[in-house]
């Protein structure tokens, strides 16, 4: 059983219905953050399917931070803000890790799966899942910060 430390809930200066978390950008702390976000969304009345879509995309974004942004340095903090705006859920992620290659979002294209079993891909699905499950995804490198925003339609 992997123990995931619970994230810190940052004191709410934000509007009701929003959530602010801080946790380390390491694989071990991702489950705790996902649990907190899913509980928050369920409490807001989002259905299981919607919560599942958000959790899958967010898991991929956090895996990327843990495995790439902090790949060659000790994991630093990740700041997560989730807020419902009208018919959208907006999740902002900020970290101080390495920038994305080329400082741009990967395309997240489908792999060719019509290949011999030995040649099937074992990775590279993260951005595909993020792009499939979000309405909009944006990234900027601001100084030493990576700022990734995932927007989900709630309609």
């Amino acid at each position: 059983m992997v123990r995931s430390r619970p994230p810190t809930v940052v004191s709410p200066v934000s509007p009701p219905g929003s959530l602010s978390l801080q946790f380390d950008g390491c694989v071990a702390d991702i489950r705790g953050a996902l649990d907190s976000v899913r509980s928050h969304l369920a409490a807001l009345g989002l259905g299981d399917e919607r919560c599942g879509a958000v959790e899958i995309a967010l898991a991929e974004a956090l895996n990327n931070i843990a495995e790439h942004a902090f790949a060659r340095r000790p994991p630093g903090p990740v700041y997560l803000d989730a807020e419902v705006e009208g018919t959208c859920l907006r999740i902002n992620l900020v970290d101080l890790g390495c920038p994305l290659p080329g400082q741009t979002l990967p395309t997240g294209l489908h792999h060719d799966l019509d290949v011999a079993p030995d040649a099937l891909p074992e990775g590279g699905f993260g951005w595909l899942l993020i792009r499939e499950l979000t309405e909009e995804v944006s990234y900027i490198r601001s100084g030493a910060e990576n700022r990734l925003t995932l927007v989900f339609s709630l309609e």
Binding site: G52, I56, E60, L120, E122, G123
Partner: peptide
């Protein structure tokens, strides 16, 4: 719940 790492592990 499964993520892309879990999917990759099944493959």
């Amino acid at each position: 719940f499964i993520d892309s790492s879990g999917l990759g592990a099944i493959v």
